[in-house]
Amino acid sequence: MRIGKGLSLALCEAIEESNIFIVVFSENYASSTWCLDELVEIMERTHKNSKQVVYPVFYHVDPSDIRKIRNSFEKHMTAHENEIGKESQRIQAWRSALFEAASLPGMHIPTG
């Protein structure tokens, strides 16, 4: 997979065929446009297929920091906004997917 390219057809098909998604959120998760695009695809697919389940793991991040785009998530999202525009559809999709996924029950592994 090349940096800067969209999700491949193979990855989109794999997402469509999967039943369980384990999304591991870390401090640098939002730095990756690839991870953010993949999260959007996962969240959109789970709306279409009630058999698909998303299970978030919050690794040394607080779910509320993701929902409210604070701390490292704010830093990375601001960088993306400066690059592609704060009001872009892609940014809005990322924000929505982050909020939705961070609102799901999952496992929280706190710092320490």
Rank of each mutant, 00 (worst) to 15 (best):
residue 86 K to F: 05
residue 43 M to K: 03
residue 46 T to G: 00
residue 24 V to G: 12
residue 67 R to L: 02
residue 58 F to L: 13
residue 70 R to F: 09
residue 68 K to T: 13
residue 74 E to G: 06
residue 67 R to Q: 08
residue 94 W to C: 07
residue 72 S to R: 12
residue 95 R to E: 14
residue 80 H to E: 06
residue 61 V to L: 13
residue 79 A to V: 01
residue 62 D to H: 13
residue 62 D to E: 15
residue 64 S to I: 04
residue 22 I to D: 00
residue 67 R to C: 09
residue 21 F to Q: 06
residue 39 L to V: 07
residue 18 S to M: 02
residue 104 L to K: 14
residue 53 V to W: 11
residue 71 N to F: 10
residue 78 T to Y: 05
residue 93 A to T: 06
residue 91 I to Q: 04
residue 55 Y to F: 15
residue 89 Q to P: 00
residue 57 V to N: 02
residue 80 H to Y: 08
residue 100 E to S: 12
residue 59 Y to P: 00
residue 27 E to G: 14
residue 94 W to G: 01
residue 93 A to P: 00
residue 100 E to F: 04
residue 35 C to A: 15
residue 64 S to V: 06
residue 57 V to E: 07
residue 91 I to W: 02
residue 14 A to T: 12
residue 37 D to K: 15
residue 65 D to I: 02
residue 21 F to C: 07
residue 19 N to M: 03
residue 103 S to P: 01
residue 25 F to G: 04
residue 67 R to A: 00
residue 52 Q to V: 06
residue 30 A to C: 02
residue 86 K to V: 05
residue 46 T to H: 00
residue 34 W to A: 13
residue 24 V to E: 12
residue 27 E to H: 11
residue 25 F to Y: 14
residue 80 H to W: 03
residue 33 T to V: 06
residue 13 E to I: 08
residue 75 K to R: 14
residue 81 E to V: 04
residue 15 I to R: 01
residue 95 R to G: 06
residue 90 R to D: 04
residue 106 G to T: 09
residue 85 G to Q: 00
residue 88 S to N: 08
residue 33 T to L: 09
residue 35 C to M: 13
residue 37 D to P: 05
residue 48 K to H: 13
residue 106 G to R: 08
residue 48 K to S: 15
residue 64 S to N: 06
residue 72 S to Y: 05
residue 83 E to G: 01
residue 60 H to T: 03
residue 39 L to K: 08
residue 101 A to T: 11
residue 72 S to H: 13
residue 30 A to P: 02
residue 27 E to Y: 04
residue 43 M to T: 10
residue 72 S to F: 01
residue 16 E to Y: 11
residue 80 H to M: 07
residue 39 L to D: 04
residue 36 L to V: 09
residue 39 L to Q: 08
residue 61 V to W: 08
residue 68 K to S: 14
